[in-house]
Structures are given as structure tokens and as C-alpha cells.
Lab assay of single mutants.
Amino acid sequence: DEFHFHWNGRDIRVRGDSEELRRLIEAIKRGELSEEEIERAIEILER
């Protein structure tokens, strides 16, 4: 699976399928994380 979302003017695409990944992306979409937490998560996910 590939998750695709927009954040902070960026087009983010992440491959993978796990419950943890889904929860993280939902939290990002709901605005539950700080900008710094989101940046760090995206860096890890894009590897």
C-alpha cells in the first residue's frame, strides 16, 4: 500500500502498511502532533 497526503505544502508518499503507520498518518491529518514531531516522522517514513 501507499499512503499519500499533503502536509505543509509538501506532497508526501509513504509505502508500507502497518497499524502503526496508519495511526501516525491519522494523527498527522488530525493535527495531533507538533510540527517538529511531524517533520521527524516524515523523515523516517521517507527512507
Rank of each mutant, 00 (worst) to 15 (best):
D1F: 04
D1S: 04
D1L: 05
D1G: 08
E2P: 02
E2T: 03
F3R: 01
F3E: 04
H4D: 14
H4K: 03
H4E: 07
F5I: 02
F5W: 04
F5D: 00
H6K: 01
H6I: 04
W7Q: 03
N8Q: 12
N8D: 04
R10A: 07
R10K: 13
D11M: 15
D11I: 15
D11S: 15
I12N: 00
I12C: 02
I12V: 07
I12A: 00
R13H: 15
R13A: 08
R13S: 12
R13N: 13
V14K: 00
V14L: 10
V14Y: 09
R15A: 14
R15M: 13
R15S: 13
G16Q: 07
G16T: 09
G16K: 06
G16E: 09
D17F: 06
D17K: 06
D17E: 11
S18K: 07
S18R: 07
E19R: 06
E19V: 10
E20N: 09
L21R: 06
L21E: 09
R22M: 13
R22G: 09
R22P: 03
R22K: 12
R23E: 09
R23I: 13
R23C: 11
R23V: 11
L24D: 00
L24N: 01
L24A: 03
I25A: 07
I25K: 02
I25R: 02
I25D: 06
I25P: 00
E26N: 11
A27N: 14
A27S: 10
A27M: 14
A27E: 10
K29L: 08
K29N: 12
K29A: 10
K29E: 10
K29R: 11
G31A: 08
E32T: 12
E32D: 13
E32W: 08
L33Y: 08
L33M: 11
L33S: 04
S34Q: 13
S34F: 08
S34M: 14
S34A: 11
S34V: 10
S34E: 08
S34Y: 06
E35K: 12
E35F: 15
E35M: 12
E36I: 14
E36D: 13
E37F: 10
E37V: 07
I38C: 02
I38D: 00
I38Y: 03
E39H: 11
E39L: 13
E39Q: 07
R40C: 01
R40H: 13
R40Y: 12
R40S: 09
A41M: 09
A41F: 12
A41V: 11
I42F: 05
I42K: 02
E43H: 10
I44V: 15
I44L: 14
L45C: 01
L45F: 13
L45H: 06
E46T: 12
E46F: 04
E46Y: 03
R47Y: 03
R47I: 13
R47C: 06
R47W: 02
